[in-house]
Simulated assay, not measured.
Amino acid sequence: MTIVRLGYVAMSVHLQNCSPSQTMTFAQFQRIPDCDAAIRKLERIAVSNLENCLRLLKHNLAHDIRFFRLSSKLIPLANHQELEGWNYIQPLRAILKEIAEFLHKHPMRVDFHPDHFVLLNSPDSEILKMSMKTLRIHQLLLNGMNIPSKHRCVLHIGGGYNDKEKALEQFIHNWAFVPNDLQEMIMLENDDTTFTLENTLYLCEKLEIPLVFDLHHHLANHDNSDWKPQWERIVEIWKHSPLPLKMHISSPRSDQDFRAHNDFVDPDMFMRFLHDIKGTVPQIDCMIEAKRKDGALFQLVNNLKGYPEIEWIDQATFSIQ
């Protein structure tokens, strides 16, 4: 038996006016003549994003959803070089504390997936520094919410730079420059264009980093290898983590546009996967990466109710025999 917990990404299609990713461009910032007033506006946007984040967490609680990806766009321009001295966390402490108190009362697994410009295998030292600065922002937010930071940020390996083997070794080289407290935040995900499951396993085993298996990415980028012989290695890697094994689930938009995410998840594909892995782990947390966000989760739940081998624990968690 394996327990399966479903989660979704960042925002809801059911809650109105609840975006956690409201933003301001640097051009808009510059058009405000008073710099202090511009910074106060940035802070108001960040507070609003976090207030909406709390609304989303309450929405999740009402539907027994205890697995959620936070938006990485909570604080606009936080890592912009022209705002180097801005203490962006201070004005957020009250709302961060409110979120912390909510999560203490209603425990949920929450994490981040920093944007694609976080490149820990970059040969450019300035890009590496900016990547670590972005990770530090995520760490400060986690600390403000009183969430243990270990294994809370999913990253792709980075760029192939026309030599994939060299790019993998560059990641290992750069890893030595990443502070230990940032290292422990990181999980790595196989991607859909460059680094396969096998490539990602190589780094994860060498550096003791958990691997977030993305089945859709594997189907798009697998070098003619099957994921099943590698599953035991994925499970073994998670023994270093205090959290259950995590994966991403999504379905292709079409055969012609295979890499793009569908609005919903194909329940038959998901069930085939679950039948292959059931009993190999006590629990697996499945993050739905579908265009319809929580709507895709609700639709998948409805679809799965037709399978007799599933026993529902609550509205978003079930066991499979």
Rank of each mutant, 00 (worst) to 15 (best):
G7K: 08
A10P: 03
M11F: 06
S12I: 11
S12R: 04
N17L: 13
S19G: 13
S21D: 12
A27W: 09
R31F: 00
I39Y: 11
R40C: 08
A46Y: 01
S48H: 12
L54D: 11
L56N: 14
K58M: 15
N60T: 13
R66G: 07
L77E: 00
N79G: 11
H80G: 03
H80I: 10
Q81E: 13
E82F: 13
L83W: 14
Y88R: 14
L92P: 04
L96N: 05
L96A: 06
I99S: 01
A100V: 09
E101M: 06
F102S: 03
H104P: 00
K105C: 05
H106N: 13
P107G: 03
R109N: 12
V110G: 00
F112R: 03
D124E: 11
D124K: 07
D124C: 08
E126Q: 15
K129I: 12
M132L: 05
K133F: 02
R136Q: 07
I137W: 08
Q139D: 06
N146C: 11
P148F: 00
L155D: 09
H156P: 04
N162A: 05
K164T: 12
Q170M: 13
Q170G: 03
F171H: 07
F171E: 02
W175N: 01
A176P: 02
A176V: 06
F177E: 13
P179T: 07
N180T: 08
L182I: 13
L182F: 10
M185E: 12
L188V: 12
E189L: 10
T194M: 12
E198K: 12
L201Q: 14
C204G: 03
C204D: 08
I209D: 06
H216C: 04
W227A: 07
E232P: 02
E232N: 15
L245Q: 06
M247V: 04
M247I: 14
H248M: 04
R253H: 05
R253C: 08
A260Y: 01
D263R: 06
F270T: 11
F273Y: 14
K278H: 13
T280M: 12
Q283T: 03
C286I: 02
C286D: 07
M287T: 00
I288C: 00
A290T: 03
K291C: 07
K293V: 03
D294W: 01
G295A: 01
F298E: 04
Q299A: 15
N302M: 07
N302V: 07
N303M: 05
N303L: 10
Q315D: 01
A316T: 05
S319C: 15
I320Y: 11
I320K: 07
Q321N: 10
